[in-house]
Amino acid sequence: MTERIGLVVGYEDTFPPAFIAKVNETPGFRAELAKFGGTPERYQSPYRVLVDRLSHEVPYYRFHLKAAMLAGTYVVNDPFWWSADDKFFGFSLASKIGVTVPRTVMLPSKSYAPSIDPSRSLRNLEYPLDWGKIADYVKFPAILKPADGGGWKNVSRVNNMDELLRDYNDSNQLVMTLQEFIEFDEYVRCICIGKKFILPIKYDPRRRCYVEADNFLPKALEQKILDGAWALNHALGYDMNSVEFACKDGVPYAIDFTNPAPDMCVRSILPRYFHMVVDEMARFTIELAREGRKNASVHAFQKFLESPIPRPETT
Rank of each mutant, 00 (worst) to 15 (best):
L54K: 00
K303M: 09
P128A: 06
R48V: 10
G37L: 11
Q173F: 12
S55V: 02
G90A: 04
P146T: 04
P46E: 11
D185R: 01
D52S: 14
N160V: 06
V251G: 13
I143A: 03
D117V: 11
D256R: 01
F29G: 06
H299A: 09
Y74R: 05
A213I: 02
P146N: 04
V155H: 08
A67I: 09
R311E: 14
L129I: 13
F184R: 07
L226A: 10
P128T: 10
D227M: 08
Y137N: 07
I5Q: 04
N77L: 12
D263T: 04
E163K: 04
K294C: 10
N160C: 05
S83T: 10
Y74P: 01
D130I: 07
F29R: 02
E3D: 15
L174W: 14
K66A: 00
Y61N: 08
A67L: 12
V243C: 13
L270Y: 00
E183D: 14
S121V: 08
A296C: 08
A231M: 11
T285G: 05
L226Y: 04
K22G: 01
F304R: 06
T314H: 13
L125K: 09
Y47H: 08
I225S: 08
G10Q: 10
V278W: 01
K96E: 15
H56F: 07
G150F: 14
Y187E: 12
V266R: 01
D170K: 02
F63G: 03
S268M: 09
I269G: 00
I191Y: 00
D279P: 05
H64Q: 08
S119F: 10
G98F: 12
V278R: 00
